[in-house]
């Protein structure tokens, strides 16, 4: 460890003073590591870091982006996607519309994965897709729907598992080519989501800690995966309560595979295996 907990407190205080970003309730270890990385990458010490935060707005914004973690993959954890396909989405399939929010969507792979699944279930048309992140840069990538092909190559197998196969019936096989949803240019190592997918979601910047609903609507389904692990216990509970207030009755919440509700907030939801329903 290069820096002390006192140093970390000084940095948190500086962000609070010079911006609206509040890192008080972030998980200590990962936050500390991100700050250390900034110190190394920008060749700063604690006083000069604080000084830059005070005097350099651009640095402040960039460093916030460096602190927040962005990990997402197409169809990450097929088990979750099977649950969405066979357990969660059918609950809302008879409704006239389905409101879905990806909270902390990063570069958007999960957003596109869900739209593909919805399309295969003939639900895309009636779905309203909302997605938010604290980082404008990753939202820009998400809006473009353009990714490295090779980077995602591993996840073609996940696509096959979720879209082509049925874990409850091994004889079932639906041959849906990947190219139905993405234009792939292998020579440039790029792939781009088809425009009917790209034009569908509404992407907006949002700081989950500030708890403002930037979409002015309620939701049938909220996905927030591997975001809460960066929050401490108190902030996790507050955020799950915030989600509760934004879900329609019987709405569903999907967290990351290794995230769960540990506090009193759990009593406001019914746990259904790996997803939660608002009581």
């Amino acid at each position: 460890m290069l820096i002390t907990p006192e140093d970390v407190q000084k940095i948190i205080l500086a962000y609070k003073r010079y911006s609206t970003y509040q890192f008080d309730d972030y998980s200590e270890k990962s936050f500390t590591r991100r700050v250390e990385k900034i110190l190394i990458d920008y060749k700063l010490d604690i006083p000069s870091y604080i000084n830059r935060l005070r005097s350099d707005k651009e640095f402040l914004e960039q460093s916030m982006k460096d602190i927040t973690v962005n990990t997402t993959e197409l169809f990450r954890d097929p088990k979750i996607w099977h649950t969405l396909k066979f357990r969660v989405l059918p609950r809302y399939s008879e409704q006239d519309s389905i409101n879905i929010w990806h909270a902390g969507c990063s570069t958007g792979q999960e957003v596109y994965s869900l739209m593909i699944l919805l399309n295969e279930m003939d639900l895309l048309e009636k779905a309203n897709i909302y997605a938010s992140d604290i980082n404008e840069d990753v939202l820009e990538v998400a809006r473009s729907g353009e990714y490295k092909y090779r980077f995602n190559l591993d996840y073609l197998e996940n696509y096959n598992q979720v879209i082509k196969k049925n874990p409850y019936n091994f004889d079932e096989f639906k041959d849906v080519p990947f190219e139905k949803y993405f234009d792939v240019d292998k020579s440039k190592d790029r792939m781009k989501a088809k425009s009917f997918l790209r034009q569908k979601p509404l992407f907006r910047k949002q700081n989950l800690v500030a708890q403002n609903n930037v979409f002015y609507t309620k939701f049938d389904l909220i996905l927030c995966r591997n975001v809460l692990i960066y929050f401490n216990y108190e902030l996790q509970n507050k955020t799950i309560d915030f989600f509760h207030s934004l879900l329609f009755n019987k709405g569903s919440l999907v967290l990351g595979v290794h995230e769960s509700m540990l506090g009193p907030i759990a009593s406001k939801y019914i746990k259904k295996g790996i997803y939660y329903i608002k009581k």
């Binding site: 998980s27 200590e28 270890k29 990962s30 590591r33 991100r34 973690v69 692990i229 216990y233 290794h258």
Partner: peptide
């Protein structure tokens, strides 16, 4: 996932 041990005898995970 990375696995950290945190103050307060808590485990935290991360996808850094």
């Amino acid at each position: 996932y990375h696995m950290y041990l945190e103050l307060g005898n808590i485990i935290s995970l991360s996808t850094e």
